[in-house]
């Protein structure tokens, strides 16, 4: 299986075998039941739909409840499709656990970053702003946004606006530890999103 659904739990540190301190993010990863298997014959591509976290049936539409029932799994809060290699046996009702990352060196983790609302240009793009003292009135303003000629603001000009709450992926994070019995995954470095945020963990694409 290519990946799994999880939640970010928080950060701490561990010492590696050489005694170095490593900052790690603790992720709760799975267990994820396989809800549906898509095959090239029926769907045109190969993937497994994984569910994550139980949901009350009363909170779902009847069609959704039946979808889970068909696979023989409990209703889930969320589902996501993951590709898997040809030749591996995957069928609906199986459970995918964090153990798929056993022996994997690097993972990509994507999630929704913390939302910062409508942010000014100093916070959003780390611009310098104007003078705070000496009678400056352009304290946190953007400054010039163009010249007399061409007399218009070029497209893509960085300006204040919504910051954060977008999908981002942290690539090639080293796997520090896989804890199968706790369904936990420890990766080196930070991961997008708040504590408790949903993350998608995949085997690294480019390593």
């Amino acid at each position: 299986m290519e990946g799994i659904l999880g939640r970010k739990i928080g950060m701490t540190q561990v010492f590696d075998d050489q005694g170095r301190r490593i900052a790690v993010t603790v992720l709760e990863a799975g267990p994820c039941p396989v809800v549906q298997v898509k095959t090239p014959e029926t769907d045109g591509y190969r993937a497994a739909q994984l569910g994550f976290e139980e949901q009350k049936p009363s909170r779902l539409a009847k069609a959704e409840v039946k979808h889970f029932e068909k696979a023989g799994v409990k209703p889930c809060k969320m589902t996501k499709e993951f590709a898997f290699d040809e030749g591996t046996e995957v069928k609906a009702g199986d459970t995918v656990t964090v153990n798929i990352f056993e022996g994997v060196k690097y993972v990509d983790v994507s999630g929704v970053t913390k939302g910062r609302g409508f942010a000014g240009v100093m916070r959003r793009y780390r611009m310098g702003g104007g003078a705070m003292t000496h009678g400056g009135h352009s304290k946190r303003r953007i400054g010039s946004i163009g010249a007399r000629r061409p007399g218009l603001v070029r497209k893509g000009r960085r300006m204040p606006g919504q910051m954060g709450a977008v999908n981002r992926k942290a690539r090639n994070l080293a796997v520090v530890e896989v804890r199968g019995e706790d369904n936990l995954l420890l990766v080196a470095g930070s991961v997008p999103g708040p504590k408790g945020g949903v993350v998608i963990i995949r085997k690294a694409l480019k390593k």
Binding site: I9, T12, Q13, D182
Partner: peptide, 18 residues
């Protein structure tokens, strides 16, 4: 769940160190 998991990892690390 959240605090517990991190506490457990920390406790293990401390135990290993000592």
């Amino acid at each position: 769940m959240i605090a517990k998991a991190i506490d457990k990892i920390d406790a293990e690390q401390v135990a290993k160190a000592n």
